[in-house]
Design a protein around this nucleic acid. Sequence first.
DNA 1: TGAATGGGCACTAAATAGATGCTATATTCT
DNA 2: AGAATATAGCATCTATTTAGTGCCCATTCA
Lengths: 145, 145
Amino acid sequence: MLRLTKRSEYGLMALAFMAQSGQSYTSVREIVAKLRIPRRLLAEVLKDLSRAEIVEAVRGPGGGYRLTSPADQLSLARIVEILEGSVAVAKCADGSSCDLSPSCTIQEGINLVAQRVKSVLDDFTLAQLADRGPQGSQSVHEVAV
Amino acid sequence: MLRLTKRSEYGLMALAFMAQSGQSYTSVREIVAKLRIPRRLLAEVLKDLSRAEIVEAVRGPGGGYRLTSPADQLSLARIVEILEGSVAVAKCADGSSCDLSPSCTIQEGINLVAQRVKSVLDDFTLAQLADRGPQGSQSVHEVAV
DNA sequence: TGAATGGGCACTAAATAGATGCTATATTCT
DNA sequence: AGAATATAGCATCTATTTAGTGCCCATTCA
Ligand code: SF4
Ligand code: SF4
């Protein structure tokens, strides 16, 4: 339906939160306290992001997650790709095979569209996303030091 | 999942086919003969496009569907909007309300992304799509006269 | 009249997405 | 050591959306 999943949205919210917060480690509990999203689901999402090394996790009291790289070097495409597999507008647009492919007359065109949509996500960074949030006055990637 | 539905793809294929074929009326039967897609589903799709006056329908022998406007004046956004409701990358991006909206920190940013994705679809015409298909050598919108 | 062709509705099936439970493991603090 | 805090892993269940189909009616034309 050309729509981002909740997983992506939750992930982006959490990452934006981390980018803004400035603190070193942020726990799921903290994030859930601010944003009103299902705790367990957010945990799943962050775990995936941790596996993909988008964030670094530390357990135990005072632990939580932390971005592994500056927010302005993290594209939405990357995040969405991790959280929902790929950003392909059509099945054939990310290498997957489609049984209609042989007789499909619009494949080439659709792929061009897919490519353009992809670049939109590629060009949008987490920093840009966070900069537009509530606390998004100061440059996020400057603060995160 | 940021992916077009089959409805959209089938619709686009059919419209591209009509744009290329040059003949005045094209029946579901004809389209299905070329493209290997479920007949009944395509019929549903074309009916919706007919309701939206993207195509004009004529019943009876020799009847079928015909584009109501030149292929280069029909954007993918328009078609997708008709076939799947809207092209919003996020729920809130098309006016719909989202219960997370009050506490959502990324709404503004996401809307910007949504807007950009929308313009990709807005700027891509059926003619462009059809021009890249199998028979897409000559300019589609010139032929359709 | 009969064949071709779209129109309308309702329904089933499959795929995706959303959400949660439970237990294990690591870390810190007392 | 033991309690408290946090993430890790896995399985599962439910809800929503998408895909696909059946059946009959209306229109047009030869
Ligand atoms: S564009 Fe054609 S080939 Fe690519 S996924 Fe859609 S149908 Fe399959
Ligand atoms: S962006 Fe925020 S408000 Fe908009 S749909 Fe996603 S969650 Fe709801």
